Computed example of a mutant assay.
Amino acid sequence: MALNISMENIEPNAALLIIDVQHGFDSSAWGPSTNPQCEANVEKLAEAWEKSDRPIVVVRHDSPKEGSPLAPGTEGNMLKDFVAALDPALKIGKSVNSVFYGTPDLQEWLGAQGISQFVVCGIQTNMCVETTARMGGNLGYQVVVPIDATRTFDLKGPDGTTTSADELMRTTATNLHGGGFATVTSTSELLAAL
């Protein structure tokens, strides 16, 4: 498992993983969301990564589910304009919750670049962001999650009870921090550390 790192120790080659910042997440099909500042914070991080010449990885979810707002070939599958305008070091497509199961292979690329630390931001907090951070921590990477550069949606549990997006974000932060998978921080703290 990854150890928590000092925010003063952001490596010069730390990668920024921008996960699933796509138009399809603006669909009402997902239900109530939280943290309307997510995309603005992701954009600030992308600008800082470009200025510091650190690598950016852009990830797109290609849903295999019929009628999904993220289905390939639909407008919803498209990246938000500010993400689409980036010139990332790597572009990954995936159809599951972890970037480590996308194409091309993230772990192989990180190894080839000598990268041992990465920052995860994007959508959804408790799905693709958390799963990628947990796997990264288990694989021995130093993972940082600026939680306010993520967002999610209300979610109904097996008993029919709905958990709010705000509560899911708090739970993800607790899981990642308490489990030692990642250092959980804010966008402003991360930018100050650069």
Score class of each variant (00 low, 15 high):
32 P>H: 09
35 N>L: 12
35 N>E: 10
38 C>M: 10
42 V>Y: 02
44 K>T: 14
46 A>C: 10
46 A>H: 00
48 A>Q: 11
50 E>I: 13
50 E>W: 02
51 K>Q: 15
51 K>D: 08
53 D>I: 02
53 D>V: 08
54 R>I: 09
56 I>M: 15
57 V>E: 06
58 V>Y: 00
60 R>D: 08
61 H>L: 09
67 G>C: 11
68 S>L: 10
68 S>K: 04
68 S>D: 11
69 P>Y: 03
72 P>R: 08
72 P>K: 09
74 T>I: 02
75 E>Q: 06
76 G>F: 05
76 G>M: 08
77 N>L: 02
82 F>M: 03
83 V>F: 12
83 V>G: 07
84 A>G: 11
85 A>K: 08
86 L>Y: 01
88 P>H: 09
89 A>I: 02
89 A>E: 14
89 A>H: 08
90 L>S: 11
92 I>R: 01
100 F>C: 12
100 F>A: 12
100 F>I: 01
101 Y>R: 13
101 Y>A: 15
102 G>N: 02
104 P>K: 07
105 D>G: 03
107 Q>M: 01
107 Q>L: 03
109 W>V: 10
110 L>K: 04
110 L>R: 04
115 I>M: 04
115 I>W: 07
117 Q>F: 03
117 Q>N: 05
118 F>I: 08
119 V>E: 04
120 V>T: 14
121 C>I: 01
121 C>A: 15
123 I>P: 03
123 I>H: 04
124 Q>T: 15
125 T>C: 08
125 T>Q: 01
130 E>D: 15
131 T>C: 08
132 T>G: 01
133 A>L: 12
135 M>C: 12
135 M>H: 11
138 N>V: 02
138 N>P: 00
141 Y>S: 00
141 Y>D: 00
141 Y>P: 00
142 Q>R: 14
143 V>M: 09
143 V>L: 07
144 V>P: 04
144 V>K: 09
146 P>G: 00
148 D>E: 00
148 D>C: 00
150 T>V: 07
150 T>G: 02
151 R>E: 01
153 F>N: 12
